[in-house]
Amino acid sequence: MAERRTESRHILSANLHAAQGADVLSRILASQHGAIAALTPAFPQIIAAAQAGAQALRAGGKMGYAGAGSSGLMALADCLELPGTFGIAPDRVPMLFAGGVEALLHMQGGVEDDPKLALADIARAQIGAGDTILCLAASGRTPYTLAVAKEAKARGAVVVGLSNTAEADLLALADIPVVLDTGPEIITGSTRMGAASAQKIALNMISVLVGLHLGHVYDGFMVNLTADNIKLLDRAARIVAAVSGADIAAAQAALDETEGAVKPAILVATGMTRPEAEAALVRTGGHLAPALLENQ
């Protein structure tokens, strides 16, 4: 265990059992800050990962996620948000989680050791040439995740490996290795803590950059969101109003005309017809900023 940084002792864990509540919380918070600091050196690799993911999606491919246990949960949390936030079809962002849905309800340690599950999952997701897959493992040695990475690479996909151990097998295998060297955990070996926090932030960074590359973010607004509940319908109207300068009533009318599609609704609210708005977005590859310039 000592050879893995994620399994070694954190300096703040000494006598943790005897510490008072506020002291425990301060130590946990300090350990989280330390883990998050590991993201800054990884910026170049995070940028490369986002470029690979965006390239795959832009060309009609997939950006998949894979992991087991806590790492898989971090991947799942990011993966599930992409359809609603950026309007990306769920089948374009498949999740490969060791053990499947059953393991989400009752975490099962053994499934992460089964490479056969990985091969079945990657076949089901139809990952192959032209796709990118984000593989997460704190130790970088999880058999399920390694098997996904190896099979995806053999099928011609770009493999992004995210690990909290610099010498990880996963990083050596990956086309784009992302090292998040978060070090020891305050609860020794509990990588659901600092390692997982850094993983989730890294995925937030990757997915936001992907959204930007695809033109799904404008001025900080999610202009390609899928409005499928009352909250998001209201948000869509407020986005259209804020970007176009129209009032809420005009924004809602524009959304009605475009059947809830935010980008063309913004252009309609600035004076375009729906066909003109859709044609402009085709010309700009779905990017709103140059389409708005056309309408000035």
Rank of each mutant, 00 (worst) to 15 (best):
R58L: 12
A59I: 07
A59R: 14
G60N: 14
G61S: 06
M63K: 09
M63T: 09
A66R: 01
A66M: 01
A68E: 08
G69H: 11
G69L: 08
S70V: 04
S70T: 15
S70G: 12
S70M: 03
S71F: 04
G72S: 07
L76Q: 14
A77L: 09
D78C: 08
D78A: 11
L82W: 11
L82D: 00
L82N: 02
P83C: 11
F86Q: 01
F86S: 01
G87V: 07
G87C: 07
I88H: 00
A89H: 14
P90R: 05
R92H: 12
P94Y: 03
L96I: 00
L96E: 02
A98I: 08
A98E: 10
G99E: 11
G99C: 11
G100Y: 10
E102W: 07
A103T: 10
L104Y: 05
L105F: 15
H106T: 14
H106Y: 10
H106A: 14
H106P: 00
G110D: 15
V111Y: 14
P115Y: 06
P115E: 07
A118T: 07
A118V: 07
A120H: 06
D121E: 10
I122Q: 03
I122D: 03
A123F: 01
A123T: 13
R124L: 13
R124E: 13
Q126Y: 00
Q126N: 13
I127L: 15
G128P: 01
G128T: 01
G128W: 09
